[in-house]
Design a protein around this nucleic acid. Structure first.
Lengths: 232, 232
DNA sequence: TAAATAGTGTCTATTAGACACTATTAA
DNA sequence: TTAATAGTGTCTAATAGACACTATTTA
């Protein structure tokens, strides 16, 4: 029974995803030390009990320290645990999914991290391949009935951009009108008094993005909304 | 930096739910020792690194040892972690949701555990109230677009029983025909050659449950199916 | 005024759901 | 044959989606 009270190690891993060239890609780096030295791995690290206020805080700190990136979206995926996943013994990894727009990548420390197509993954360290697979499944599934894909775009975006994201993810096209009615867009009805309806899925701003044509209204996402009807 | 490598404690908690008198109820017991001695708490315990093969195995062992019950359904909910949730210091709790039919309760060691209405909870130890709230939210939400409620019934059940469960959860009634078409029930079409279509949400058995009227066909759930259209 | 993309109204095909009808058992 | 519940077909109301039309900008 004494051995039963040995504590497992607790680390936090992050599956950081972005959309690039129409593909979902995940951030990976080559491990510099054993175990698994030289193999590709997710950003991850141990909980620092003297500075982390929560597991989400650990995930944010790990991403900041290792990649220099701040994700637009972060949620816990699932916690993996067992005696086999790390050669050093019984371990626990609290896995997270994070999303970031492709446009925010270039500037930051892309140094050691590179992005790999999730549908054509190389071999990964530990159980990281499984974590990526589950994360991708979660994102694709959640995208079909929620506003999750909005976090693959900058804070302000046009409906055409958003429609493009959905069409990339699902490989199907719909008419503009259909897309807008699915989102419940009804800009015309906004009476100045009531303004931004909290029930709205997207919030219409008064900003527009120009070009050589009629400017498109910019929207921002209200919150992570789930649809009653599967979106795609 | 040395302190950073102090390991947090890792425990596994289980929110065990059942449907009784039309209410969702959760299993709680009074803690026999500090911290939180005398207050109501979920079944939970530390990972035993020498005997547990996974976190799910820990959850099953804890339920077995503390309540004597084997749940029909168990899934990980979310992992809670932070410096404040337990007075002994930074701790991690891998929280699970479990479902069990009310009929399977009576026989087993209901000894120290009693079931409490989740919509009228007393004060709970640690962050257990939050865990119950999240678990209930997850179950109610998932029930609206999946076959999750099937696990609140015995393995074989009639469609009328299942419809009753949904109506209890959502407080709305629909006609029998509507309910059946939502589930995609089409018993008549089963040609003996093709038999149980793997795409079917429920599998029709050749067993019937009698009474003083036309016997009802017994079904079992194929797997946890998600519906494209929100069910309720 | 032509080109290009944004935004909207209308009409149709599909589907969800209420209701009524048939089916099968025990008393 | 009546009572009680199971199972199914039909008709209607709601809704999703394609298409075409209007709107607004630059060149």
């Amino acid at each position: 029974m004494k051995q039963s009270h040995t504590k497992p190690d607790v680390s936090v891993d992050v599956v950081l995803l972005t959309l690039d060239e129409g593909m979902l890609k995940v951030a990976l780096h080559r491990r510099a030390s054993a175990p698994g030295k030289g193999s590709l791995a997710l950003p991850g690290g141990y909980v620092h009990v003297d500075e982390d206020a929560s597991l989400e805080a650990t995930a944010h700190r790990v991403l900041r320290e290792k990649t220099g990136l701040e994700p637009r979206y972060l949620e816990q995926l699932r916690t993996f645990g067992g005696p086999e996943r790390d050669p050093r013994g019984w371990s626990v990894a609290v896995s997270h999914v994070a999303l970031i727009p492709h446009g925010e990548l270039s500037q930051a420390g892309a140094g050691v991290f590179h992005f790999y197509d999730v549908d054509d993954l190389p071999d990964l360290a530990f159980d990281h391949a499984g974590q990526v697979q589950e994360a991708v499944q979660r994102v694709r599934n959640k995208a079909s009935y929620s506003t999750l894909p909005c976090w693959l775009l900058p804070e302000l975006f046009t409906l055409t951009q958003l429609q493009g994201i959905y069409e990339q993810i699902f490989g199907e096209t719909v008419s503009r009108g259909t897309f807008r009615s699915r989102l419940g867009i009804r800009v015309g009805e906004v009476t100045p008094g009531e303004s931004a309806d909290e029930a709205d899925i997207l919030i219409a701003t008064e900003q527009f993005q120009g070009g050589n044509q009629r400017p498109a209204r910019l929207f921002r996402v209200n919150r992570l909304s789930l649809f009653k009807r599967a979106f795609w």
